[in-house]
Design a protein around this nucleic acid. Structure first.
Length: 614
RNA sequence: GGCUUCGUAGCUUAACUGGAUAGAGCACUUGACUACGGAUCAGGAGGUUGCAGGUUCGAAUCCUGCCGAAGUCACCA
């Protein structure tokens, strides 16, 4: 910020003239003064006094005196231990008010930071989106907005996992049990319909498995393979996957389906396409409700064979090696990781192979210098390895790779398990939040006189504001326990609270049309609340940059809450339209406008729209 | 077991990357201008920052060791 530079410059000159010491910018630490002390900004003197070997309080006095004399901005000071609290002049506040009023100016002329490919959704086509996906998607969308604001050119992508055993299970179950059921005939959203048959498969398979467990064959297996003291229940729980692959009748049918799919069998392909189209229509609906879009969608069915040539190249370069069975590996033990398989002995790909290939394809498509993956922290190790391998392959974007790893969303009862049915479905959740906002709004009657269409839109914005803010206000890295009731809160530290500050300002703006703005330059006695607002507005740009650099929208969300809170307080303490003078009214109105614009802009960066009324 | 991440008020969380007396919200409780919109505001109560050491002017933050939680260590995705 300009003021920080101003002080830093003054101090640099002072240190040079007085002590012949070159200051670096990190020596100068300025922070807002804590509210229990007098002043608005505080210089932390410890690092500076250490440079000249003087006692901090004594040196703070010395600097305070110097700044009083040599800066128009510093009007007074006091010293508490090693802290120099500065009070700033009316001249400072007026000048900052000018600066802050031009809300557009803060992000003009940002340096171009290059092209960034951002992957922020990777759904499976065998089940609908749930709460975890929502956190993923909202984080990604916000990062897109923030990165773009800070000078990046962002390409938004998703990778759809549209192949494999899982989708074949749904296909098999649909084929055998659906009797031709479609989204149209059932009234179910496409992704929910497919999810339904995924569950059907699980049920049928479990029944088959339970039956088998009583057979002589199964009993023999138990006797031959169970560990000492292992109960049948325990044994068969662990054996389930092997049963599917080696004994199950329907398991073999599903695996056959997968093989047919891989061979491009027309009938299976047709079924696969039909069902996937249903799912995509369902996903699109959910994405629309979340207000997100993509520039480019990658499908695993296109990419799952990629990456083999990259692996071959690595082998030629000598950074990978081949084992006797023909499989290809990379040894990362020198980087503190393991040996990692990159290609199976039979030449087929593993997950890692695909990801290597997909990264290269994206480079071919976009020539990006950076790439960010928004993926849950259960894959931390995978990405660590992936990035290391890409680095060894000397991919040009390797230094620009980042895994935006977010914590799992758990429910009060523990982890979400789709098989056990305790998942929070994305569509259900959105519906529920909208319902809550609806009853909340009708209770208050804030939208009376609006057309039905406008009411609906305002309610939607409030509801989505609540949900999005709830998920974005916490540090992405942290695992979060999602209490459905709390996400529906609309008071306190919430999206609607911030929206309410904005709505109040809009209300004032509408009424202001009767008044004329005159003489705000003459306003002298700038009060505490006004100063606090200006200070916050001055910090906005820094906060956005910080969120961009740290890949963390929660800084921005918490800042907006703080700004809203400070405005609510100001609003309560001081009259605006009925201010004591024209000058005060103009000043406060202008300040309110700046706050309103900043709130709206900041929420937009979180993917949240403002209602006009609520 | 190895590695990674995380333990802050009853609950959900913040702390400008080592700065002042750890700051909010929910819940609980006492109040508020004959309303520029009460989805608001002011106050009260609630903390040995998991435990024990260490580093220094100064530690929730850095180091070490415990205790507890989660994730991950597949020729799964």
């Amino acid at each position: 910020m300009q003021f920080f530079n101003h002080i830093a410059e003054a101090l640099t000159i002072y240190f040079k003239d007085e002590y012949e010491i070159e200051l670096s910018s990190s020596d100068v630490q300025i922070q807002p003064t804590r509210k229990e002390f007098e002043g608005e900004y505080t210089l932390v003197v410890f690092p500076l006094s250490a440079r000249v070997k003087k006692a901090p309080p004594v040196f703070a006095e010395e600097l305070g005196e110097y700044l009083m004399l040599h800066s128009d901005f510093v009007d007074g000071y006091n010293v508490v231990k090693g802290f120099l609290n500065m009070s700033l002049s009316a001249h400072f506040w007026r000048e900052m008010m000018e600066q802050v009023s031009d809300t557009e100016a803060a992000f003009k002329n940002m340096d171009y930071r290059g092209r960034l490919v951002l992957e922020y959704s990777s759904p499976n086509t065998n089940k609908p989106l749930h709460l975890g996906h929502i956190r993923n998607i909202l984080l990604g969308w916000s990062m897109y907005k923030i990165k773009q604001r800070c000078g990046h050119e962002v390409i938004r992508t998703q990778i759809v996992n549209d192949r494999g055993v899982a989708i074949c299970k749904s296909m098999w179950a649909w084929d055998n049990y659906a009797e031709g059921e479609t989204p149209d005939s059932s009234g179910l959203k496409g992704d929910h319909l497919i999810g339904k048959y995924y569950v059907t498969f699980d049920k049928v398979f479990n029944e088959e498995y339970a039956l088998w467990q009583n057979s002589d064959e199964a009993q023999k297996y138990y006797k031959d393979h169970a560990e000492d003291g292992q109960s049948p229940a325990d044994f068969f729980k662990k054996f389930k996957n092997r049963y599917f692959n080696e004994h199950s009748k329907i398991g073999s049918e599903v695996r056959k389906m997968l093989l047919l799919w891989e061979e491009g069998d027309p009938q299976v392909t047709q079924l696969w396409k039909k069902m996937n189209d249903w799912v995509y229509a369902g996903f699109k609906e959910t994405y629309d409700k979340l207000e997100v879009t993509f520039d480019k969608t990658y499908y695993e069915s296109d990419t799952y064979k990629l990456g083999k040539d990259l692996v071959e190249q690595g082998l030629e370069k000598g950074i990978f090696y081949r084992k006797d069975d023909g499989s290809i590996w990379v040894d990362l033990t020198d980087a503190g990781m393991d040996e990692k398989l990159l290609l199976r002995g039979d030449g087929t790909a593993v997950y890692m192979t695909q990801d290597l290939g997909t990264a290269r394809v994206r480079y071919d498509d976009f020539k990006m210098s950076e790439m960010t993956y928004v993926v849950g922290n259960e894959q931390d190790y995978h990405f660590k390895v992936l990035f290391e391998v890409l680095k060894r392959l000397e991919e040009s974007y390797a230094d620009g790779l980042y895994h935006l790893s977010y914590g799992m969303v758990d429910l009060p009862g523990g982890r979400m398990k789709s098989r056990e049915g305790n998942v929070v479905d994305a569509d259900d959740l959105i519906e529920e939040v909208i319902q809550t906002a609806h009853s909340s709004v009708t209770e208050r009657g804030g939208l009376e006189g609006f057309s039905e269409e406008d009411q609906k839109e305002n309610i939607r914005r409030i509801a989505m504001g609540a949900l999005k803010f709830h998920l974005l206000k916490v540090n992405p890295k942290k695992r979060m326990v999602f209490n459905p009731e709390e996400s529906l809160d609309m008071q306190g530290h919430t999206g609607p609270y911030v929206q309410n500050a904005y709505v109040r300002i809009q209300s004032i703006t509408r009424k202001m049309s009767d008044h004329t703005l005159t003489g705000f330059e003459d306003y002298r006695d700038i009060n505490e609340e006004e100063k606090a607002l200006i200070q916050l507005l001055l910090a906005y740009r820094e906060v956005v940059l910080k969120s961009a650099d740290e890949h963390d929208p929660s800084h921005l969300a918490n800042f907006l809450y703080q700004l809203g809170k400070t405005y609510h307080r100001f609003y309560h303490e001081h009259h605006i339209l009925r201010a004591e003078s024209d000058a005060a009214m103009s000043f406060r109105f202008k300040l309110s406008q700046a706050v309103g614009q900043t709130l709206e802009d900041g929420m937009e960066l979180l993917g949240i729209s403002m209602p006009e009324r609520m």
